[in-house]
Amino acid sequence: MTPALLRRLLQLLPTLLLLVTLTFLMLHAAPGGPFDDERALPAATRAAIEAQYRLDQPLWQQYQHYIGQLLRGDLGPSYQYPDRSVADLIGAGLPLSALLGGLAMLLALVCGLMLGAMAALKPHGARDHLLMLFAVTGLSIPNFVLAPLLILLMAVTLQWLPAGGWSGDPSQLVLPVLALALPQIATIARLTRAALLDVLQTPWIRTARAKGLSERQIIWRHALRPVMLPVISYLGPAAAGTLTGSVVIEQIFGLPGIGRYFVLAAMNRDYGVVLGVVLLYGVLIVVFNLLVDLLHAALDPRVRL
């Protein structure tokens, strides 16, 4: 591992620590504990349960304990399902969420780049205007609005695709992936178009033309990298957006992923699970941003970490 990379990794620590602390404090400052609903609980039993979860200890001790636990890679127990650990619950939802998010990002990247390039190669024509109108419309339809509309059209009216649920059938993922990817497709297409138009006007593309290279060579050899750079930079925010979107998308399509657990756990004040999921998302976003930076440095010879 290079010293530069190590430094970048160390820079992640304040973000993660802030994240853990904020979440922890927020949960504990909230009015009402996790066992408030069970009023009938005898005081002794209640005290025993609270002791088991260390709710009787001073806040900073609970905090210390939690941090220590995290450092050991233990996310702690679920408050709602005492027999299951948070890691268990997250592990159960992760594959589906990862599949959904990964497919959506992949689709967004491929379609976004293609549509953006199509618009930029014949700028200011009818095709360009149509594609960009489509893109700005895509940006303007939130995925939680698009999802029910897609269900209404494709599942209820046309009955081409299932409306939701998850039994391992790939067709059940088509609509969720589409709903999740569309705003990202729109953003990436706009970014690609702007970057490609920009690059094609540079003096070094003129040099490439003066060398007699074909348009195909100019695009693939000379324009692709600089066009990829802003798109790659956007992948960090795109990952965050996809994670956020997956919460509602999983809810709407009834997919048993992490996002759905998160909403359920939050409703039930299941501190452990909520903290675990927020932490997981935070780490994912932070790590994704790091990867994006690394990729950026790999593609741009002028950038050093």
Partner: peptide, 20 residues
């Protein structure tokens, strides 16, 4: 700002809404 940028903010807001 960089540190705050990397936080999954919307999730914190969701928490905030749920809790308070």
């Amino acid at each position: 700002v960089d540190v705050l940028y990397a936080l999954p903010f919307l999730f914190l807001v969701i928490l905030l809404m749920l809790l308070f």
